[in-house]
Design a protein around this nucleic acid. Structure first.
Lengths: 195, 195
DNA sequence: CCTTGAACTGAACGGGCGTTCAGATCACTC
DNA sequence: GAGTGATCTGAACGCCCGTTCAGTTCAAGG
């Protein structure tokens, strides 16, 4: 008793990732079983192993995809040369991007400790690349005399934590529209660094 | 073959909580077994049930203790009347408190989804009480005309995320001393709200 | 119409899980 | 020095885990 109708390989693969993303985000990697994911996909657990070598790789791929996409989208972003406008654009981009992907954000920040050491190192490298992009903006602003921050690295971590936090409380259709939230956060980020 | 030397009830209880706190923070609630905790305590798994009714209550008690202590310590804090000085004192307190308790902070923010609905509601109530304390400071500052924030609730969430984030990267004996970190974060918080 | 091979099932593997409990141990009281 | 009760062990309960794999189904190619 196998599949009833036609070939499903190109359907089941994405569905697996999508189901895993939703379940990991809601209940956490360790609390979700392959059987639960399989049930969500509408398949037996064994069939999942046609699309992922194991559960750990499934988690790693989700996180890597998220960070790769984050870095690629940032790179494609037109960032003004002026440090102030540049930081405003970065902050606006960061908030909007994260509000659009609450599940991915949740996983990327909560499941780091469930990665094997090698996978963890790979993800941390990507994340560091992203942080460095912000840190460079701050350093330029300091050099240009328009930002006043005692420590660029600390300010980077503080801003990213603040901006990312938006996705923890924001709910679609809530009191404030997405654009307004991004705008206010960008404004706070600028002020925080003394712009 | 039971205990070898004397009575241990007043020792094993705290040791259970301490071991659970450390293991939950490192590996996550769902990934830690009662047997692992028992091994850390130096006891068989069954013995733990003399000190906690179940694993869920163990997690809940750790989180409730943390938030109760946070609220009590905040209440005992002498906060100046001037909104600017008041916010600076709050921010400084928050960062210092969180840098001192990285394990508790990690658990309180990462394991919310592993609480039963009733326990979750109870913890959220406590957390909301704390957030309201900050929001009140911001509202006073806005009323006094010294803070400029479009939305006090949003600013509250943004500041708490930023300040709490310090405990994610801060390491004892690192580049910056604890006091300096708290000072810089407090300064950034003040500027973020336009003070 | 027969063959092939991709897609999937269903059962099994060894092992760990949270929790319970009868029984063992032993500091203490009277 | 007998008895008590707090403390803990060790084994067991039923259940779920990630992963493997022989076998089944069926769309597509010749």
């Amino acid at each position: 008793m196998a599949r009833k109708t036609g070939s499903h390989a190109d359907i089941t693969g994405p569905r697996l990732r999508s189901a895993a993303r939703a379940l990991f985000a809601r209940h956490g990697y360790a609390a979700v079983s392959m059987r639960q994911i399989a049930a969500e996909v509408g398949v037996q657990a064994g069939a999942l192993y046609l699309y992922t070598p194991d559960k750990q790789t499934l988690l790693f791929d989700l996180m890597k995809e998220h960070l790769d996409d984050l870095l690629a989208t940032l790179a494609a972003q037109p960032l003004p040369a002026d440090p102030r406008a540049r930081l405003a654009a970065f902050a606006h981009f960061h908030v909007a991007y994260h509000l659009d992907r609450p599940a991915e954000v949740f996983i990327a920040y909560m499941e780091l400790r469930n990665l094997t050491p090698e996978n963890f190192a790979a993800i941390e490298r990507l994340r560091h690349r992203y942080e460095d992009a912000l840190q460079a903006i701050l350093a330029e602003g300091v050099a240009a005399g328009v930002f006043r921050v005692p420590d660029a690295r600390l300010a980077t971590m503080a801003l990213i934590a603040m901006l990312t936090g938006a996705s923890q409380w924001y709910r679609e259709g809530g009191r404030l529209p997405r654009e307004t939230v991004a705008e206010i956060y960008a404004e706070m980020a600028l002020r925080a660094v003394g712009a």
